[in-house]
């Protein structure tokens, strides 16, 4: 949430359902955000992004023309540093994981209430990772998958520290950062940092993987 007097955060809303889109835009405007663009198409979102310069993009993972993950990659290429809050219904787990690995700042279920949604947009604008319990489960699973998969020699695989695993498990079991901080005897900020780190390592690994792939395919020139 933004306070009065602070320059309004610029938000773009990308969702193919018009009623939903307008509803979200209205909530954001009422909460003091500056909604700079709304669109239902991924390609259009990428096209208008440089001109409208949003700070935060609220992006539905399921779009009719291109996949949300592709839109996310294109947006990050056009506007490095833009923060993207992915929205989706449950049930597209691989998409959600791909999106956060590709650089989404956070993820929220579409069924979240307005207060939760506005809170998530606020945290996304501040650069904090927005996690649902479901996303924490996906990230835990991804680290285990990476650890179990046969790794190329000399590779530095991302690993969770014991503390990070502990924190992620508690997030996945629905505990708030405040509850986690209380149980583990940490500060709220430390818990937030641990969560952020789990995502950061995964995104870095993803970039390394993509670069390696590009070199292997001779596309690095």
């Amino acid at each position: 949430m933004t306070d009065e007097g602070v320059p309004a955060v610029r938000v773009m809303v990308v969702d193919d359902h018009p009623m939903w889109r307008e509803g979200v835009a209205r909530d954001l405007t009422e909460a003091g955000y500056h909604v700079v663009a709304t669109t239902g198409e991924g390609r259009q979102a990428v096209r208008v992004a440089p001109a409208t310069r949003p700070d935060v993009v609220v992006l539905d993972l399921q779009l009719p023309d291109v996949s949300g993950v592709e839109v996310l990659r294109a947006l990050l290429a056009e506007l490095p540093g833009v923060r993207v809050l992915m929205l989706s219904a449950s049930g597209e787990q691989q998409d959600v994981l791909d999106a956060v690995k590709a650089g989404a700042t956070g993820y929220l279920l579409k069924s979240a209430g307005p207060a939760e949604f506005l809170d998530a947009v606020g945290r996304t604008a501040a650069g904090d990772a927005v996690f649902t319990p479901g996303l924490a489960g996906l990230v835990l699973g991804e680290y285990r998958r990476i650890a179990a998969a046969p790794a190329p020699a000399g590779d530095d695989l991302p690993r969770l520290t014991e503390r990070e695993t502990e924190v992620l498990r508690l997030v996945a079991k629905g505990m708030s950062y405040k509850q986690i901080a209380g149980r583990l005897g940490l500060s709220h900020r430390t818990v937030q940092n641990h969560v952020q780190n789990t995502l950061g390592k995964l995104q870095l690994h993803n970039r390394v993987e993509l670069t390696r792939y590009a070199i292997e395919q001779g596309l690095d020139d």
Binding site: Q93, G134, A136, G141, R145
Partner: peptide
């Protein structure tokens, strides 16, 4: 386990 998911029950699981 997916059938237990509801407005009050969240299911967190790996993507695979």
């Amino acid at each position: 386990l997916g059938r237990y998911a509801s407005a009050t029950v969240s299911i967190a699981a790996p993507a695979t």
